[in-house]
Design a protein around this nucleic acid. Structure first.
Lengths: 185, 185
DNA sequence: AGCTACATGTAAGGAGTTACATGATTAT
DNA sequence: ATAATCATGTAACTCCTTACATGTAGCT
């Protein structure tokens, strides 16, 4: 159950509403942990009951009232305790790999179309990551420590996207060969 | 709901029992799709009801009776239909990245221990993949087509493991620097 | 008139994990 | 003796997705 810990991590950086926390999981942090706003609101409710977080209700003019959540000592202790426990092993769930695995079932052109689409997505992701790197992490060693750690996860994203791009190239080359061999489908 | 399609893929390769199908998800195919035996048995039950698979009950001497499942035409049609639909976007869920992201919360040595452990795991994975490559895919172009496709997924695994290994090196270098800076924790 | 951002949630259902339950055979 | 392999499943629970539900402000 790591959504809890993901939320604790966000709140350890700064207090925020459920809405704001959900945005973290849609943007930057979403690269390695995603959650919908529904999940976040539910989880925050449970966490408040468990005493890991508390909130301050804030009335607003012209906007819905909001709850600003913040970490309790107990929440921080829970987070630190979790940090020290060994992380779960990698576990991919990737539909594209499944489709390639049984790629012989459909015409190579159809699979190629899908791979090309995914390659475009990975290329865009890589460009986005690289742009963030250039814009914010030129002088990494002089940034605050938490930023230096978050930079490491960005580096992971860059390596990950590159590896996928290269693999897509391999698959594309193979599929083009297949299409050349059987042009009459 | 892709467990269904993963099971269809396995059965499209060869008929098998729930036990045997579950092994695929623990071994080779487990690299990109994992499922427990409990999940598999449940799913097979649903799939049989839906007419995607049928089974032959086989009594055995000295072993429990078993059900050998096989694809129906409807099952194959479902699989091919799914193959043609666009695959879901990549979505990681990685605890290790979460821990690095908030690495400043614990002493660098503790994080380093975890990274080293994971690097060892990825190194073993890479070695396993490379060994499979050498043993079975020396002469890829002359293998049956399905094997050529499965080789592509192995290539993905190799690229993936390499990318993680390199990233682990980056993190290790950084953490050793951190440990050097604050030797008094 | 329609879209995006802000801001909160409930409900139903599907997917996945962990624990429980059984029992023979073969290898160490 | 103990563990692994073969072989099946149920039950409880947690986790995640999709759909529903509401309402203002500002931009195009």
């Amino acid at each position: 159950m790591s959504l809890k810990h993901a939320v604790l991590i966000v709140l350890q950086f700064e207090d925020g509403t459920g809405y704001e926390i959900a945005k973290w999981f849609d943007q930057g942090m979403g690269y390695f942990w995603h959650a919908s706003h529904q999940q976040v609101y539910l989880e925050l409710g449970k966490m408040a009951q468990a005493g890991l977080v508390t909130f301050t209700a804030v009335e607003q003019i012209g906007k819905p009232a909001k709850k600003i959540y913040h970490l309790t000592d107990q929440g921080l202790a829970e987070l630190k305790g979790w940090m020290l426990k060994p992380a779960k092993q990698f576990a991919l769930k990737d539909e594209l790999l499944m489709k390639v695995y049984s790629g012989h079932l459909i015409p190579p052109q159809d699979l190629l179309d899908q791979i090309l689409k995914h390659q475009t997505d990975y290329r865009e992701l890589l460009n986005k990551f690289k742009q963030i790197e250039e814009q914010w992490f030129q002088d990494v060693e002089n940034l605050p420590l938490p930023h230096q750690y978050s930079y490491l996860t960005l580096r992971n994203g860059i390596g990950y996207a590159k590896a996928w791009l290269e693999w897509c190239d391999e698959v594309i080359t193979f599929l083009k060969g297949q299409i050349g061999k059987q042009p009459s489908i």
